[in-house]
Design a protein around this nucleic acid. Structure first.
Lengths: 200, 200
DNA sequence: GGGTGCATGTAATGGGTTACATGATTCT
DNA sequence: AGAATCATGTAACCCATTACATGCACCC
């Protein structure tokens, strides 16, 4: 009955509402602007673009450039804008995204704490890098598009990512501490009873 | 080449490593323990359970109860534990979960700020409730399973959820403030020029 | 008598990624 | 010479959810 999120068509509409673009441009644009919480593959973009055109929500124009392959530039129609506004008003139903790292942490007892330490450390690497990127994009939005009326919305989306990443990093710190404590206890504890003098 | 996350079989293995259960029990257990970052449907559980049995990673025993339908109780085998440990050691590749709410915020310029306010307010409702539930489970883990060696891992997973939800709530507060500011400006601003005396 | 919970499963459907296919141009 | 980028698209596959199907027992 419910059609799942399936907002693959709508994001195309949303970006085309800002400016006309080709399928390729859309892919780039998605990666650059909402890449931290959304991605689309070509396998989604091109078929959806066609469907949107069939329904009269976008219209396409072919740019023939010497040498380069044809560019199919899509622009949103009035009907498309209408549809987009309708979709924006639909309450987003809350999802529970799967988190493989957390699952492994939850099952941590089944392995050595060191395994989790490695996973979390590499997560920290990734997320620190993402955080830096987000801070850069925030600066860029302010500097280059600060006047645009959409800027506050873009900044809100970025800010979400920042706060979330900061929370993750705080968690990682805490967890690494716990895991190292567990690892230390393990190294000392498992012997049934300690002799007075350490051996081996 | 890559097989995606697809940890649907592994989570079953992980829970069966704690205690033998039926498919139905597994569904309950998943909702109760890792429900805040993972879910599985019966359509995943039963077929996967069968596959695991075929590969010798779990073994099943049928409990015939008077009146009630048969229970198929599955328990993990030595081979299954081995497989689980191997999977736990595989680095979880970072995913970018799609966030429909954020997408709508990002495209907020295409609609009225009030629309986003409604969405965010209902998100706040949801997340506040989840946060309360997480706090309760944390207490329960400490009280009822505090001695178990797995408890620290369970608490780490819960803690992740708490920090994330807190971050979301902080973001929501900030964003609602911005949106109300925008809404107020809109109400005042869009008229080309203000007369001295307000009319209408 | 009807709803809810226990209990098991299958089939249909759909959404999305990956891999494949093609081909020119520009940079190294 | 070869890699990367621009550019478009399709087909296969997989993972997952939803809906369907069945049936007993217990509670209100």
């Amino acid at each position: 009955m419910t059609k799942r999120s399936g907002a693959s068509a709508e994001i195309l509409l949303g970006l085309l509402a800002m400016e006309p673009m080709s399928g390729y441009d859309l892919a780039q644009s998605i990666r650059a602007s909402v890449g931290h919480f959304w991605n689309e593959s070509y396998g989604q973009i091109y078929p959806n673009l066609r469907k949107l055109a069939q329904n009269g929500l976008v219209k396409s124009r072919t740019e023939r450039l010497a040498g380069k392959p044809d560019r199919h530039v899509h622009s949103i129609t009035a009907k498309g804008r209408q549809r987009l506004r309708e979709w924006l008003a639909v309450p987003p139903h809350p999802e529970t995204p799967r988190n493989e790292l957390l699952l492994k942490v939850f099952l941590g007892e089944q392995t050595e704490p060191e395994v989790l330490v490695v996973h979390i450390e590499s997560m920290v690497q990734n997320e620190r890098a993402s955080l830096k990127k987000l801070e850069a994009t925030a600066q860029e939005i302010i500097a280059a598009h600060g006047e645009q009326p959409a800027a506050p919305y873009w900044l809100m989306a970025v800010r979400f990512g920042q706060l979330e990443l900061q929370a993750h990093l705080r968690w990682a710190e805490e967890s690494l501490k716990s895991l190292r404590r567990i690892a230390a206890q393990r190294a000392a504890g498992p012997q049934p009873r300690r002799r007075k003098h350490a051996d081996k």
